[in-house]
Design a protein around this nucleic acid. Structure first.
Lengths: 333, 333
DNA sequence: CCTTCGCGTCGAAGCGCTTCGATGGCCTGC
DNA sequence: GCAGGCCATCGAAGCGCTTCGACGCGAAGG
């Protein structure tokens, strides 16, 4: 069974090859009767345009690259949701997704772009001083970044508004009358790596607390139970009046609850806890955590939309910050 | 800056286009001096072959599809390791990876295959009665499955040897002198979905226990703490002499330890626990779990190798089972 | 010395598609 | 009744690459 080409369709429908092409692309008007005849032939023969030929002729591969940081220690559920949402959204725009790992580095991006394998790039987990950023500026292919490098000038970046998320948590606690609050953040290495989002959360938190006249404290937090326990204990020792705790570290969130239980503090009676984490983690905790969710799906969808807009030559905002949403559950009052 | 084509390279090196092509593909002998001149030009001009043109002319896209079950509730770390290993291995064979979600179903596979977007397919998490299997048999493009459908005839399947893994656990416990053992498996839905690996583990476990004259018991196990606790309690009530427990459920593994602690059984003094799970989970538990690991990386690498072999027209075994390895840690004696 | 062979290279024919300019038929308006 | 215009369709020229057959030349063989 030889594969069906556009010429087969044309012959079957009794029209020229170009007519079939125009029916399929809609780039020229074709009479309703011809159009129907062609579409029938397409269906009957089971025609699928050859991707390579199309890419060659039209200079559009209809494929975008998704560059994921597939190193260990990522927030897997969020990453997965994000990837799923990117693939699904891309399909809605009739595009496919080429999966790449960050470890190919700038060369990998250059390769897929220069070979016209992909029309555009989506990079996740961009760091403050990301070696790929200068390349992206040079590339003819449009790109969208998840996260913010030091200088987003000339790029297109999407992210959750982490500063706002931090602030939202502080405000929530302020509204409930808490006067002394603290934030436990990501592991120290995350700050050192300079991904940016962790710092921005802290900054937003501290700023909002200050604005509301709260006494606030923010520090990194490791992920093992023992270290979380030690951190929580230290915090409570130093700040006996502490009654509100924000945890921006999904691995640690559960452990914080465990530590508080062991330390004899009830949640939420003695200490209110707010987490910045995916909903499923917040819901599964006990008590269920009041949380600000990381809207991975929104981010993915939005990123693809922006990329598609750029592919069509539209200009898009350099920076898109997604508004965080706080869901109140059992762990705060 | 127009993109560099093979014609540019040819002109720059003072040779014919076809010569450049042969230098790059190695399909005909080219004298060392010419070869070097061409390679120099390639480097100097920064030439990258156009993927579409190459695919069109050679009928090889140098892309494989990776179909992941991006629904929730998967074992994310394993899935990620697997995906990473697939991408990395594919790159070693100079191939790229197109990411697809299972929810496009058979039509999606047909689409990418018929459009020659990909040369081969890698499907993860194949189910016993998978609707995609009949299609794969028909497709001209080769494919490799992770997991086993009911009838693997004519397909190429790779998986951990789960039966062996179950047996290994039973044998480990038998060697240590345990006489009454049990296995807590995946949630009930997994068995109902019929992915196969869960059943095979159970079967291997039961068979090995029987062979060693042990009293054995195997049942599904849900993932929430409360349900795990109930299951463990029921088991201990029914089988007071139970001293060895195998857990094939990474979400439940930690909870089992918690439940045993609450029920006053020390691990490993009173009950030895063996898990079938990724190493990181086993190591993070306390006490660290003796475990049989799911070698996601091996599976990915092996799957890509098989696919590449098929792409080159070699015949490969229908079934490849990866030998499980047991790592002894603190939870068993 | 001439033929034969093989090595290294070239030229040209596609691969299947998009797109541009051309064409022919038909309607409109004066 | 005819010029002008528009609509629907066609034909052909590439897009950048691979690959096949051909060719020229020096070495080997008779």
């Amino acid at each position: 069974m030889r594969t069906v080409t556009i010429a087969d369709v044309a012959k079957h429908a009794g029209v020229a090859v170009s007519t079939v092409s125009y029916v399929l692309s809609g780039k020229r008007t074709i009479s309703a009767t011809t159009r129907q005849r062609v579409l029938d032939s397409v269906r009957e023969l089971g025609y699928h345009p050859n991707a390579g030929a199309r890419a060659l002729a039209s200079k559009r591969a209809k494929v975008i690259a998704l560059v994921l940081p597939l190193r260990a220690g990522m927030n897997l559920p969020v990453l997965m949701q994000f990837a799923t949402s990117v693939v699904t959204t891309a399909r809605q725009y009739d595009h496919d997704v080429l999966l790449m790992t960050a470890d190919e580095g700038p060369d990998g991006l250059h390769r897929v772009a220069a070979s016209a394998l992909v029309d555009g790039l989506l990079l996740m987990d961009v760091e403050i001083h990301d070696p790929r950023v200068p390349l992206l500026r040079k590339l003819a292919e449009p790109s969208v970044l998840i996260g913010f490098p030091a200088d987003p000038e000339g790029l297109t970046c999407v992210d959750l508004d982490f500063a706002r998320a931090g602030a939202l948590c502080a405000e929530h606690l302020a509204d409930r009358g808490h006067r002394e609050i603290a934030l436990l953040g990501a592991p120290r290495v995350v700050y050192e790596r300079g991904t940016g989002f962790a710092e921005r959360t802290m900054a937003g938190f501290v700023e909002a607390a200050r604005r509301h006249g709260l006494q606030a404290d923010a520090r990194p937090c490791e992920e093992s139970f023992d270290e979380v326990y030690a951190a929580v204990k230290l915090l409570l020792d130093e700040r006996p009046g502490l009654s509100g705790l924000v945890v921006h570290n999904e691995a640690a969130a559960g452990h914080v609850l465990g530590a508080l239980r062991i330390l004899g503090r009830r949640v939420p009676e003695d200490v209110s806890v707010v987490a910045i984490c995916p909903d499923d983690i917040a819901e599964r905790a006990s008590p269920a955590l009041t949380s600000v969710l990381i809207p991975a799906e929104d981010v993915g969808r939005q990123a693809v939309r922006l990329l598609m807009a750029k592919l069509e030559g539209q200009t898009v905002p350099e920076s898109t910050l997604l508004e965080p949403r706080l869901t109140i559950r059992e762990s705060s009052r």
